[in-house]
């Protein structure tokens, strides 16, 4: 039995989600290899080789993989998949984009966003925005799986796996990367942050969002998130969205400010260890999942909180 983890590569490094996906792979059992695909991704491959429990790292280097375009990337994964009983990738936007393409080319029904491994062929995944948990047993000989990284502990470092080069699988030439407009921030990345401070529509404007939410986040060394309503209203960019169709987070501390708590938002944060809600509407559904609720005007309470934290 052998399992392949497809790494989340960013330039010369790999994301923590890769370590977490390795944990899911180890829970399935057998030998675990990692595929690192990128452009000049040698350092990323070396980083992947340090993850404990990994047998070997497959390193594919080609300009076609630099921007993670679905068509060449899926062809590469398919080209190495024959040696494996299961292929896993974190359910971040790249994994969600590429893996179903891989699954269909292999005639496999993908198992999306697993949160637990019950047996090598049986997995638990959330459905209906996490309002129900489905346990499924796959009848496919090969499994194609995306992993909700926050549900697994990161595999430790300390390994020294062999790195082997694999051939690029060509580029069908049907897609072209034009540009990326990425949010620049010195704050921690939302998906992996220990503390997340999120704002909702009650903030009222992007200026107020910055004025109220950012100082608290900076005081706590936290990442900043937002409800769909705040993103739709244009207060913050799309990649701040926490929820069913945005990012799923499970930090030590999640502070929801001016967020009412629609089920689609709760789906993205209710596995956080401690949840704080600040909202002036005491009937807001967010209070049903909050460990600590403060019914207050956020424009007064949040600056007060910043001061109280010294």
């Amino acid at each position: 039995m052998a399992v392949l983890v497809v790494a989340d590569v960013h330039g010369s490094s790999i994301d923590d989600s890769t370590h977490k996906t390795v944990s899911a792979a180890l829970a399935i059992g057998g030998d675990v290899d990692i595929l690192v695909a990128g452009e000049n991704a040698g350092d990323a491959a070396a980083a992947a080789a340090k993850i404990s429990g990994v047998r070997k790292v497959l390193h594919a280097d080609d300009a076609a993989y630099g921007h993670r375009l679905a068509e060449p990337f899926a062809d590469l994964i398919v080209s190495v998949a024959s040696d494996y009983d299961a292929v896993l990738k974190a359910a971040a936007t790249t994994g969600k984009n590429v893996m179903p393409r891989v699954a269909a080319k292999l005639d496999v029904m993908q198992i999306s966003e697993i949160v637990a491994v019950e047996a090598p062929d049986t997995f638990v995944r959330p459905i209906y925005a996490g309002n129900a948990m489905q346990t499924v047993k796959s009848k496919d000989a090969k499994k194609v799986i995306t992993v909700r990284a926050t549900a697994f502990k990161a595999a430790e470092e300390g390994g020294s796996a062999e790195v082997v080069s694999v051939d690029a699988a060509g580029d069908p030439g049907v897609s072209e990367w034009l540009n990326e407009n990425l949010t620049k921030s010195d704050r921690p990345e939302l998906s992996g942050a220990k503390i997340v401070v999120s704002g909702g529509r009650a903030l009222g404007s992007s200026e107020k969002f910055e004025e109220v939410i950012f100082p608290l986040a900076d005081k706590l060394g936290a990442a900043v998130g937002a409800s769909r309503a705040a993103v739709d209203a244009g207060y913050v960019p799309n990649d701040y969205q926490v929820g069913q169709t945005g990012k799923v987070v499970a930090p030590e501390l999640y502070i929801a400010i001016g967020i009412s708590g629609a089920i689609q938002h709760l789906a993205g944060m209710k596995d956080s260890k401690t949840i704080v809600a600040i909202n002036k509407d005491e009937e807001a559904p967010i209070f049903q999942v909050a460990d600590y609720g403060l019914v207050a005007d956020l424009f007064k309470a949040v600056p007060e909180l910043v001061d109280a934290l010294g």
Binding site: P126, I127, A132, M133, T135, S138, D140, V289, A301
Partner: peptide, 24 residues
Amino acid sequence: PRLEVVKVTEPPVREAGVKVESVA
């Protein structure tokens, strides 16, 4: 179907929290 649904269950329920009176 390629996936057999073994079961569908309720998600883990969070225990009800408390309301605090002040920022302090």
